[in-house]
Design a protein around this nucleic acid. Structure first.
Lengths: 131, 131
DNA sequence: CCGGATCCGGTAGGATACTG
DNA sequence: CAGTATCCTACCGGATCCGG
């Protein structure tokens, strides 16, 4: 079976591996935390860490840090540290991050337009199973 | 702080909770496994379990089963069991599932068009950190 | 005081073996 | 073939600590 390395990126990239590469990056980008951060930063522009934490909601500070680091590494956000006391760190989207946010736009719209059908489907499924 | 219940859906849904509901469903839909299954079924139409497993790749049968159950519950796929030996189960997208697949289209295109920039950004980030 | 690193307990998720 | 059951690891959340 053709194995796809989920997190490693080979040093030399063969042309035929591009599909796998795309596949892997999709896997990292299709994360709810990243979507939430994209959403919050798209809506509010520049945000501080704590503010972002409140806006996203239900995210541990540990995972928010980790998510933001990954997004910074991938070139989706910039992280600007102001050397003051108490610390002040500003996060904002890069053009690349903004474009990804835009790409997710249809997904948000799909949920807004279809959540009713999803809820209804779940009710039916659960009712059927409960018999 | 305003808490968002990640998995519970209240029996009576207040209008002001709709945002949270949309938020929750995004969280469940923004899963790489779901994206992979949507992609595979969009491309190949009806597929059996094992075939789907091969097409998605790097997914445990446990998680594939779980993902497919969730998608069935949410009304994204249909599951047709042929009562024969050996078992034969066909999965295919519902219209709702197809529409979600379409909503993710821009995200796939984003990755195809931007993965080079992401890789480059990672290289720079790692080089900077290594100093 | 804010941003985040660290340690620890619980749980999601992978590998394997088994069954209808 | 398409799952379930079992075990075990790795990751996540929460509490705590800390440097600036």
């Amino acid at each position: 079976m053709k194995t796809r390395t989920v997190r490693k990126v080979p040093a030399a990239i063969a042309t035929r591996d591009i599909d796998d590469l795309v596949f892997d990056i999709i896997g990292q980008v299709a994360d709810r935390r990243i979507m939430y951060v994209l959403e919050a930063l798209t809506e509010h522009g520049t945000m501080r860490f704590t503010r972002l934490s409140e806006a996203v909601g239900n995210i541990s500070q540990k995972m928010l840090t980790q998510t933001l680091r990954q997004m910074e590494r991938d070139g989706l956000v910039t992280r600007k540290v102001h050397p003051v006391i108490p610390p002040h760190v500003d996060y904002r989207l890069t053009p690349l991050g903004r474009s990804l946010g835009g790409a997710f736009c249809d997904v948000w719209k799909w949920v807004e337009g279809s959540y009713g059908r999803v809820i209804e489907s779940r009710r039916e499924f659960d009712a059927r199973r409960r018999v």
